[in-house]
Design a binder for these strands. Structure first.
Length: 489
RNA sequence: UCCUCCGUAGCUCAAUCGGUAGAGCAAUCGGCUGUUAACCGAUGGGUUGUAGGUUCGAGUCCUACCGGGGGAGCCA
């Protein structure tokens, strides 16, 4: 098998990291190697690069092509002249075309780059067309959404999606370093008891002619799973089961919300990170959330300086400073009760006046994190009536051990709680919330057999990407967004 | 789902009080021996989102629908 694998790897026509190319697996040099390695060592050397034309500038007898091979944020400048046998074709090559370039690494006389590649040969691997929809100018994000299959080729989306990948990797690394076990909770769930809003139905029944009983009700007993099934809205309940063995666990997967919400912060198909820790209370939970965020943000500031510079320059001027501030200072913590008091005494007139017992409105959340604290803030211990049944009831009997993390610009980034570990209290809460007890039999079992205090939270991954990049619309931080009335691509 | 704003060339936008469609970029052709969203010149490009209505006349006013942005609710 190793031989087969090696043979396959050698034939893969993609780009690889620097190390691979030096080991001779790939025949091409990556743009990243040139920028991040010591390019002076490569001066005068012949290299082969393969990538796509970002822009092209042609004078009489010579021209420049900026090539991007996906390995690095910046483009490699290719210089070519009439000595090329196919000079005429290359000088009119359309934007977006895929090229393989053989040439010499040379110092660049231009001011904007230290080096460039003087082409000895350029092959057009994949031609493009004059009607290539991406132009050498700024497009609106709205327009780019209509060409979501091409937008990764723009500077902005190149930066966003490398950042998205780095963030995912950084999160996995963080949990791995801290001995969390990564659990794959089910995507399809057979109960609609997850309690987080409307769900998408999963069925193989003929929806135009489903089997019905005498009363006309659909007989879901004849459906694929022998009962009603849905796409999950959260992996939390399931991951709690694994928490009671591994102690520290997390999920990182898709969740689906069929809510008809139409805002720059909501999508129907999203990715969530949900850690769950045993023998832990709400304070431990906040410590984890804070340490995790600080760790991954510090990591991407180090690993993606070019992308961060770009976001600061073109997307959100203050983004880098904001993130550095997050790494350097503690998050604020305030109880819901104190937050309501702070808002009341702020003297600010809100559209919805605050009073104890109400859920905080977006305007209140923003005021707290942006005006009062100016940094991320945990709001804890909400009234039990406005929170989920599984959150642990506090001794005051009117609040639960919940926490929301509010951050400037994005709003709620994390929602979590200490879970109710007392079997009798949990049963009572289920009843109080008007929920049926039966579907929760296994969830209640977890409290029966060695249940411990435990806590966890959900981090909306897209909202984290928004926070880190400064992007204002969630549809622009996921490759192909799904929202009400829209599932193109 | 509600409120609000918008829809004009491939893209980004302009068009005064209702008076008959315009620019930059892109494309095409030409020029330019070091460009950097290259530059200079020329050419082509429109059922003004759709369907009705008011008017001598509608991109402009009215109605409905479709699509998009922002805000709210719900939440991550």
């Amino acid at each position: 098998m190793p031989t087969g694998v090696r043979r396959w790897a050698r034939r893969v026509p993609g780009r690889t990291d620097g190390a691979d190319s030096r080991r001779g697996i790939m025949k091409t040099t990556t743009v990243k190697e040139l920028f991040r390695g010591d390019y002076t060592a490569l001066l005068g050397r012949q290299v082969t690069v393969a990538g796509w034309v970002r822009t092209r500038r042609v004078s009489k007898g010579f021209g420049f092509i900026e090539l991007n091979d996906g390995s690095f944020f910046k483009n490699l400048q290719i210089v070519f002249d009439e000595n090329l046998s196919n000079y005429e074709a290359i000088s009119r090559v359309a934007l977006g075309a895929a090229l393989r370039v053989e040439g010499e690494v040379v110092e660049s006389p231009g001011a904007k780059q230290a080096f460039e590649v003087k082409a000895g040969r350029i092959d057009v691997v994949g031609d493009s067309q004059p009607d290539y929809p991406l132009q050498k100018k700024r497009h609106t994000f709205e327009y780019l959404r209509t060409i979501a299959h091409l937008r990764p080729r723009t500077n902005t989306f190149t930066a966003i999606f490398r950042m998205r990948s780095l963030l995912a990797q950084a999160l996995h690394d963080y949990f791995h370093r801290h001995n969390f076990v990564y659990v794959h909770t089910p995507i399809i769930t057979a109960s609609d008891c997850e309690g987080a809003g409307d769900m998408f139905r999963v069925t193989t029944l003929d929806i135009n002619n489903p089997p019905r009983d005498e009363q006309g009700h659909v007989r879901f007993g004849e459906d694929f799973f022998g009962r009603e099934a849905y796409l999950t809205v959260s992996g939390q309940l399931a991951v709690e089961a694994y928490c009671m063995n591994f102690g520290k666990v997390y999920t990182f997967g898709p969740a689906f919300r069929a809510e008809n919400s139409n805002t720059p912060r909501h999508i129907s198909e999203l990715w969530m990170i949900e850690p769950e820790i045993a023998f832990a209370d709400l304070a431990d939970n906040m410590d984890l959330a804070e340490d995790m965020l600080r760790s991954v943000i510090g990591r991407i500031l180090e690993d993606a300086p070019e992308e961060m510079d770009f976001f600061g320059k073109f997307i959100d001027e203050g983004v880098r400073q904001r993130l550095e501030h997050v790494c350097a200072s503690d998050f604020a913590r305030i109880t819901y009760t104190d937050a309501v008091m702070e808002l009341e005494k702020s003297g600010h007139t809100f559209e919805f006046p605050v009073h104890w017992g109400m859920d905080l409105q977006t305007e209140h959340e923003r005021f707290l994190t942006e005006k009062i604290f100016g940094k991320p803030v945990f709001v804890t211990d909400y009234p039990k009536e406005i929170k989920a049944f599984y959150m642990r009831l506090n001794d005051d009997n009117r609040t639960v051990a919940a926490m929301d993390l509010l951050v400037p610009g994005v709003g709620e980034l994390i929602g979590g709680s200490q879970r109710e570990e007392r079997h009798d209290v949990l049963r009572r809460r289920i009843r109080e919330m008007g929920l049926p007890e039966e579907p929760y039999w296994w969830y209640l079992d977890l409290r029966k057999y060695g249940g411990t205090p435990h806590a966890g939270f959900g981090l909306g991954f897209e909202r984290l990407v928004m926070y880190v990049t400064g992007m204002k619309n969630i549809r622009d931080v996921i490759p192909f967004p799904r929202v009400p009335n829209y599932a193109e691509f």
